[in-house]
Computed example of a mutant assay.
Amino acid sequence: MLALPLIAHGADAPAPQGSIHDGPYVFLNKQEQGFAYWICHSALKLTAINHAQLVRPTDCGSLPEPKLYQGAANVAADTFTKVSKIVALSDVHGQFDVMISLLKAHHIIDDQHHWSFGDGHMVINGDMFDRGHQVNEVLWFLYRLEKEAQAAGGRLHLLMGNHEQMVLRGDLRYVNERYQVSAQLLQRRYDALYHHETEIGQWLRSKHTLVKINNLLFMHAGISPEWLTRKLTISQANQLFRDHVDATKTELKQDDLLNFLFFANGPTWYRGYFKDALTEEQVDDILRYFKVEHLVVGHTSQEQVLGLYHNKIIAIDSSIKKGKTGELLLIDNHKLKRGLFNGEQIAL
């Protein structure tokens, strides 16, 4: 029988009521390396990791059984050209089933949830965390799919949104109650389940906040005119986000540049396109700065994928977070299409 490593953080807590399954949680500190934690029927269980493969305990639902891989936390390029097909969606917020149904309907994945988009690129415009009850399932699915996409000649770009940033710095206002159970049983704060000494935590900290593909720039919320006055490049901003993602709100607010990047006018929070705050000329200035023709954003909820400013701004937060339906953006040979929940495609 496996000896349970001592948990170094948090105070003792009684076992919560109810029955949930959750996990796996893989910690990389010396004491716990080589083990995976699971929550099965609201009880903490432990399994050994054999040859990087995670195998869930019996009678523990259908939790992910990922294979860990070296290089998962390598920093990828943030600019790509000559990509023939792209799919993008945003603000999944733990709604794993809706996301899977949508990706299957458009043949991005097959019936076994494996990559079937060939050399295409898939972009997740942030906000996997909070609200919904299957955040961990979403994260481990994308962890696996990223490797499958690259093996097929494609790419999966997972961008950081404001809710990723909030959780990693300990702002837990929107965490689903399911994860309160997990945190209690693991005797850690919820954000510590994704700190830099966890497999998923390291993987997340390697991700970009902005990525440029062909003539499109993707980010969670948007680019404000203030960006142009600061003359930042995409790569400079991505590095600043990675370097400071664990900083406290107070620390970020004390630095002028970080205060801009991480809050209201930065690319994970800005909502100006939806408030008539910009003229089309200002939008054109932003596009010229980045040498693109479209900005693709999430963050501000719509009922469908929506083109603004003559499709120069494409809003892809289609309210997946409600757990009922959603849409995605498809780009094939520069043609923009809404991908509906039933698999239908409509020109944008």
Score class of each variant (00 low, 15 high):
residue 1 M to W: 10
residue 3 A to E: 15
residue 3 A to M: 12
residue 6 L to G: 01
residue 7 I to E: 06
residue 8 A to D: 10
residue 10 G to D: 07
residue 17 Q to V: 08
residue 17 Q to S: 11
residue 21 H to W: 07
residue 24 P to A: 02
residue 32 E to L: 02
residue 33 Q to K: 13
residue 35 F to C: 08
residue 39 I to T: 07
residue 42 S to Y: 13
residue 47 T to P: 04
residue 54 L to K: 07
residue 54 L to I: 15
residue 62 S to T: 14
residue 64 P to E: 01
residue 65 E to G: 03
residue 70 Q to C: 12
residue 71 G to H: 00
residue 71 G to F: 00
residue 72 A to G: 03
residue 72 A to S: 13
residue 77 A to F: 09
residue 80 F to E: 12
residue 87 V to Q: 09
residue 96 F to R: 05
residue 105 A to G: 09
residue 108 I to E: 07
residue 109 I to D: 05
residue 112 Q to E: 09
residue 112 Q to W: 02
residue 113 H to K: 14
residue 115 W to Y: 02
residue 116 S to R: 11
residue 118 G to A: 12
residue 124 I to A: 04
residue 128 M to G: 02
residue 132 G to S: 05
residue 134 Q to P: 06
residue 141 F to C: 06
residue 141 F to I: 01
residue 142 L to D: 05
residue 144 R to Q: 14
residue 146 E to S: 15
residue 146 E to M: 14
residue 147 K to N: 14
residue 150 Q to I: 11
residue 154 G to H: 03
residue 154 G to Q: 03
residue 161 G to Y: 02
residue 165 Q to T: 07
residue 170 G to C: 04
residue 174 Y to E: 08
residue 176 N to P: 13
residue 186 L to W: 04
residue 193 L to D: 06
residue 205 R to V: 03
residue 206 S to K: 03
residue 208 H to V: 03
residue 218 F to I: 05
residue 219 M to C: 00
residue 228 L to V: 02
residue 233 T to H: 01
residue 234 I to V: 14
residue 236 Q to E: 15
residue 237 A to H: 00
residue 237 A to C: 11
residue 239 Q to A: 09
residue 239 Q to G: 01
residue 240 L to M: 14
residue 249 K to F: 06
residue 254 Q to G: 15
residue 256 D to P: 13
residue 259 N to A: 12
residue 261 L to E: 04
residue 261 L to H: 05
residue 262 F to R: 01
residue 264 A to N: 14
residue 264 A to K: 11
residue 267 P to S: 15
residue 272 G to N: 08
residue 284 D to T: 11
residue 291 K to M: 07
residue 297 V to G: 03
residue 297 V to Y: 07
residue 300 T to N: 12
residue 306 L to F: 11
residue 309 Y to W: 04
residue 312 K to W: 10
residue 314 I to D: 00
residue 315 A to K: 03
residue 315 A to H: 01
residue 321 K to H: 07
residue 330 L to E: 13
residue 342 N to Y: 09
